[in-house]
C-alpha cells in the first residue's frame, strides 16, 4: 500500500476487524483519513465498504452479535471511537451519516435541521435559528427553502431532501461526514449539485464516501481506497488509482474486467 504524501490525519483505522456474528466482514483494515479531504471507498458489492463506513459512527452497535476489533482513532483527540467506553451517541454527534435514499423526518424543514440541536439540549430559539440557516446554507439549500421553512420536508424534491439530510448532518457541527452512496437515488442534475456540495464541504469537514459510481469517486475524492472481500487492496491519491493503479486487482475492477 502506497500512502504517498500524508498531510494531516483526521482519523485512522488500525488493524480494524469487524464480525457480524461468525462472518468476518472486515479484515485487518489500516487506512488513514486525511483531514478536510474526501476519501472514497470503492469496491464490488459485498466487499465491506459500507460495513467499514458504518464503523465510523458506530452504526453496528444497534445490532447484537456484532464485534469490533482494532481501533479507529479520531485526531487530534487520539480517541478510539470504537472502544466500548465511548458513548456511540456522542460519536454520532461528531461523525454524521448521509444515506443512500433521502430520509428526512416526518417534520418540517426547519425541525429536521433543528432536531440534532434539540437532542443535544440547545433550547435558545435564536441559536437554533442561526444554526438552521447556517446548515441550510452549508447544504446549498437555503435559497430554495427560506420562504417555506415550516413546510413538511416531504414537499421537497428528492435532491432537495438529500441536501436537507446533509444540512441536518451539518447542524451538529460534525468533524467527519459519512456518505453512503448519497446520489444513487438522484437524477444527474441533483447528483451534480450534491457532488459540488461535497467538494465545497471539505473546506470545513472531513468526508468519507462510499460510492458504486467510479466516475463519481474520480470526480470528487482526493484519496481512494479499493476494497475487496473485506480488505483494503490499494489506497492512494485518486488520480493515481484511476490512471495507473499499482494493483492488478484494482486495475481489473476500475476497467470493469472483474467479477
Amino acid at each position: 500500500m502506497n500512502t504517498t504524501i500524508l498531510t494531516e490525519l483526521k482519523a485512522e483505522a488500525k488493524d480494524l476487524n469487524f464480525l457480524y456474528g461468525q462472518v468476518h466482514a472486515l479484515k485487518d483494515i489500516n487506512l488513514p483519513i486525511e483531514r478536510r479531504k474526501v476519501t472514497a471507498l470503492i469496491g464490488p458489492s459485498g466487499c465491506g465498504k459500507t460495513t467499514f463506513l458504518r464503523c465510523f459512527n458506530r452504526m453496528h452497535d444497534l445490532y447484537p452479535h456484532n464485534r469490533y476489533k482494532g481501533e479507529i482513532i479520531l485526531y487530534p483527540d487520539n480517541v478510539n471511537i470504537i472502544s466500548p467506553e465511548i458513548d456511540p451517541i456522542e460519536v454520532r454527534m461528531q461523525i454524521s451519516m448521509v444515506f443512500q435514499k433521502p430520509n428526512p423526518f416526518p417534520k418540517t424543514i426547519y425541525e429536521n435541521v433543528a432536531y440534532g440541536l434539540r437532542v443535544r439540549g440547545t433550547k435558545k430559539k435564536q441559536v437554533i435559528d442561526e444554526r438552521v440557516e447556517k446548515s441550510l446554507r452549508g447544504a446549498a439549500l437555503w435559497d430554495e427553502v427560506k420562504d417555506r421553512l415550516h413546510n413538511l420536508a416531504f414537499d421537497l424534491s428528492g435532491g432537495q431532501q438529500q441536501r436537507l439530510c446533509i444540512a441536518r448532518a451539518l447542524a451538529t457541527d460534525p468533524r467527519i461526514l459519512l456518505f453512503d452512496e448519497p446520489t444513487s437515488a438522484l437524477d444527474p442534475i441533483a447528483t451534480s449539485k450534491i457532488e459540488e456540495l461535497i467538494i465545497e464541504l471539505k473546506n470545513e469537514v472531513t468526508i468519507i464516501i462510499v460510492t458504486h459510481n467510479m466516475q463519481q469517486a474520480a470526480r470528487i475524492s482526493d484519496y481512494t481506497a479499493f476494497m475487496y472481500i473485506g480488505e483494503i487492496v490499494e489506497y492512494d491519491r485518486t488520480e493515481k488509482i484511476f490512471t495507473a493503479p499499482s494493483s492488478k486487482l484494482t486495475e481489473d475492477y476500475i476497467t470493469g474486467r472483474f467479477g
Binding site: 467510479m214 484511476f242 490512471t243 495507473a244 484494482t250 486495475e251 476500475i254 476497467t255
Partner: peptide
C-alpha cells in the same frame, strides 16, 4: 465509456 486505468492509458 469513460474508461479508467489501463483502458484510459
Amino acid at each position: 465509456k469513460q474508461p479508467m486505468g489501463k483502458d484510459l492509458r
